[in-house]
């Protein structure tokens, strides 16, 4: 065990070097998510009483599919950064690596599943 204090070990190392990037990306995706979410709510509202065939016809429209795909990408990137921030602040030290992997995996799965579904509905004939 080193006799150096944690502060002594950290001092002089500088910052990790990518904190500002994440901060900025969080802001950019917050603005894109805000705009995209308004459209998403409108799309979901119009589908509230639709039949299955009508839902598929709506998602076959490239504007709807594209808008929803951008929404998912923006949401998932934003929530990835946000969850990572929570893990770094509150995650117990020994859990940080595992939680980071879980966060990455969860976000990738959500994005992959949503995008696959949207692409299938855009290209696929009902």
């Amino acid at each position: 065990m080193s006799i150096r204090t944690p502060m002594g070990r950290a001092r002089g190392m500088g910052a990790a070097g990518h904190g500002v990037g994440e901060f900025w990306h969080q802001r950019v995706t917050s603005v894109t998510s805000l705009v995209l979410a308004i459209g998403m709510i409108f799309i979901l509202l119009t589908l509230a009483t639709s039949t299955y065939a009508e839902v598929r016809a709506t998602f076959a429209n490239p504007l709807v599919g594209g808008w929803m795909a951008l929404t998912v990408i923006s949401f998932v990137y934003h929530m990835y950064i946000g969850a990572q921030e929570v893990i770094m602040e509150y995650g117990p030290k020994t859990w940080k690596l595992g939680l980071t992997l879980a966060n990455t995996g969860f976000c990738l799965m959500i994005a992959a599943a949503c995008l696959f579904a949207l692409i299938k509905m855009s290209f696929g004939v009902l």
């Binding site: 299955y52 839902v55 998602f59 929803m68 969850a83 959500i110 599943a113 949503c114 579904a117 509905m121």
Partner: peptide, 15 residues
């Protein structure tokens, strides 16, 4: 973050 599971379910179900 966890609520996105429901949106994903709905989209995948529709597809």
């Amino acid at each position: 973050y966890f609520g996105m599971v429901f949106l994903t379910w709905w989209l995948v179900a529709a597809a």
